[in-house]
Design a binder for these strands. Structure first.
Lengths: 217, 217
DNA sequence: TTTTGTGAAACGCTTCACAGCG
DNA sequence: CGCTGTGAAGCGTTTCACAAAA
């Protein structure tokens, strides 16, 4: 009942999975689901699901399960999905351009509102309908669009420098595609997507024969 | 001393980080490092580093630390990085094309040796110097290049189907860029790169104000 | 000295099991 | 009945702290 009590990190990570599942079920018009069914779809136990959801209040109904429309709306607000998240992308290389073409980033949930790059030959060109801006335009872009998110898709050696610029511009969260560990102020959230590391992990698992085949999720 | 004893999952995940750091130090010509220094560079404690490395034998020298060249070579073999890993990429869309242009996948460590796509209008075209093959060529491509890795970069709804094809072709590890949970044989390793989820996580952390800002690593 | 390798303690998360509610 | 919410037990990982080695 105490909404302020600390949320276990693993629970926080699973919340997005619950939301996806519930959103799909809601769209399909289903009305209720119990903890065991919800967990089974995600490879989790019923107890796990109940413990996780109980962190945020009493959503369930004994003997029935969870009301899907209600749970959907509660999770939506909890996860901050009741608004649009604007993001500034830094780096118009291979990865950056792929992200610009990715329709998920032009949705009403998440939107890339500006692109910056250090390469003068790219500045002024257009990708995915957005003009590439110079690096010194990061701050103005963040303010102009009230962007809360920054996406780093630059070469490794420039990652920390770009992170500093984004933080200084007032960004609150960074999605980092570089393999570098970023050192930023504690108030800024970071989520790293290091697929080089994922690959390296695979190579290890195969050659060493580590038992468990799946990863955290 | 018992090389067969089970390795904790978190330890396995950190191994690649140690290797990267040691490789850099080795290239710089440094000879020794102690556990505290190695850990500090990665945001870990000295005790953590020692426990992790001790899983694989007695690498360190009391009063001195770890010999970098020797540790580098040991980790290299342990992680299977003493050979080239060939991968078959499935999906020549935005993400797939970005991966093809990514020089890390044309290195001597990891190499994309073939590209397949279901879209007939893409088959036969060339991306990053590689011809796009039809889906029914997956199996022959895997065998021809002795590929151990498969990379899934197709639309969500096709992910499981492609995974089945890859497993049937004899692939041993899958790098999955779709947000779908793949159901495969236990002997196949899976590593997922779900940056949509990373984004969603960021949105939650910012709007809810979750304390810890960093993630697992 | 310095620093490793390692039992033992501490911690955090998951699973169990059941009281209580519909 | 069926199912939730939750204290308590169980389990895996991290941290501590120190004997032993150089």
């Amino acid at each position: 009942m105490d909404e302020k009590s600390r949320i276990p990190r693993p629970t926080a990570k699973r919340l997005t999975l619950y939301f996806r599942q519930i959103r799909t079920l809601a769209a399909a018009g289903r009305k209720t689901i119990n903890s065991r069914q919800l967990g089974a779809a995600l490879g989790l136990t019923g107890a796990q699901v109940r413990k996780d959801l109980a962190c945020f209040g009493q959503f369930g109904h004994p003997g029935v399960g969870y009301q899907i429309p209600s749970l959907h709306e509660q999770l939506r607000q909890l996860l901050g999905r009741d608004r649009t998240w604007n993001a500034v992308l830094v780096g118009a290389g291979n990865i950056g351009r792929a992200l610009l073409s990715y329709d998920r980033f032009s949705s009403e949930d998440f939107r890339i509102v500006a692109v910056c790059d250090a390469d003068p030959s790219l500045v002024g060109s257009e990708w995915g309908g957005r003009e590439v801006l110079a690096m010194d335009r990061i701050e103005s872009a963040v303010h102009e669009h009230d962007a809360k998110l920054g996406i780093i898709a630059v070469p490794d050696h420039a990652a920390q420098q770009v992170a500093d610029l984004l933080v200084e511009a007032g960004i609150e969260g960074i999605l980092n595609f570089s393999p570098r560990r970023l050192d930023v102020d504690e108030t800024v959230s970071i989520s790293s997507v290091d697929f080089t590391r994922s690959l390296e992990q695979l190579a290890f698992q195969i050659s060493f024969g580590v038992s468990g085949t799946e990863e955290d999720e």
